[in-house]
């Protein structure tokens, strides 16, 4: 059995890697169980591994590629002694300390655990989807909207986040078509009113996207009328999927208090979970801001919270 660690960090997006940098610099020699390569957004490096240019991360005036930014985070954590395990935690037991985590049959134990497994965008699961992400197909209007100045784009979804994205994108795009498979929105009244009164936003009701057009970049989509079954093509250079996010919290069910929406419940203004010694940071506990910079900030909080907690235990 591997030796007990002071700190294990599960997940390696901006939150987990910032927690790794801070806890490594505090001489806690953290082990980061960073996840396994995949194409579904719970991979090492997190959601930024599926983006191209990151232009809103402070400190990079010319912007930086998402994967490169995450490689920098990782190198910085490694430089201060963080260890990495490129595998995925399959099970946890936080009922007693030291806390236990499993990767397959192998057990890892730690005095403190920082959970930063992130969230994934719910996608449409259509052919060619993955290749087009970052090339016209996006799940982050704040990140990519800028690239669609004076172009015609679409937003898929009918909730608050879809309305927020459509409204935000109307600042850049010449026209935004909201594609929704029902004839009414799920979004809150205020978000609906805002979208309805926006002259650049059109609605395509009762339609769903059935395919993407374009190989290396998105050139259009095919939509189907859910009532008549009739299909038609729309020429679009950008399509934003806003049908929701899903936190990567499956392995924590029954172990940590989760909110109704599945996100980890943390005490306000901290990274503390309901279990003393287990901390959560980044998108796995944040359904409001969801930015790399806020994730990194909360990762720093978790590392400091863990460090102080460990000091209290030993003192």
């Amino acid at each position: 059995m591997p030796e007990n660690r002071q700190v294990i960090i599960i997940g390696s997006g901006p939150a987990g890697l910032t927690a790794a940098i801070y806890s490594a610099r505090a001489n806690l020699s953290p082990l980061v169980i960073e996840g396994e390569p995949s194409s579904t957004s719970d991979q090492p490096g997190g959601q930024l591994m599926l983006t191209t240019d990151v232009e809103n991360y402070p400190g990079f005036p010319e912007g930086i590629m998402g994967p490169e930014l995450m490689q920098n985070f990782r190198s910085q954590a490694e430089r201060f002694g963080a260890d990495f395990l490129t595998q995925k935690v399959t099970r946890v037991d936080f009922s007693s300390n030291p806390f236990q985590m499993w990767v397959g049959e192998t057990t890892y134990t730690a005095d403190a655990v920082i959970v930063s497994t992130g969230a994934r965008s719910v996608m449409l699961n259509l052919p060619n989807e993955f290749e087009l992400v970052g090339h016209g197909l996006s799940t982050c209007a704040t990140c990519d909207g800028f690239f669609f100045r004076d172009q015609e784009i679409g937003v898929v979804g009918g909730g608050d986040s879809a309305m927020e994205e459509a409204t935000f994108l109307s600042r850049f795009a010449s026209k935004v078509t909201v594609i929704h498979r029902r004839d009414e929105l799920r979004a809150s009244k205020i978000m609906q009113d805002r979208a309805f009164s926006n002259p650049k936003i059109d609605f395509l009701w009762n339609h769903e996207v059935t395919s993407y057009k374009g190989e290396s970049k998105l050139e259009g989509i095919t939509v189907k009328d859910v009532n008549s079954g009739q299909e038609k093509d729309l020429a679009l250079s950008g399509l934003f999927i806003a049908i929701g996010h899903k936190p990567n919290t499956d392995i924590f069910q029954g172990q940590l208090d989760l909110l109704e929406n599945g996100y980890i419940s943390t005490q306000s203004d901290s990274s503390l979970t309901n279990i003393s010694g287990v901390f959560a940071c980044g998108d796995v506990q944040d359904f409001t801001y969801r930015q790399a910079i806020t994730a990194a900030g909360s990762g720093c909080m978790a590392a400091i919270d863990a460090e102080r907690w460990l000091e209290d235990q030993s003192g």
Binding site: S38, S39, P44, M49, M65, P67, M70, Q71, G134
Partner: peptide, 12 residues
Amino acid sequence: EWCGPCKMIAPI
């Protein structure tokens, strides 16, 4: 170059 998951599997 722009593909994050490609970079992830490169060392493997």
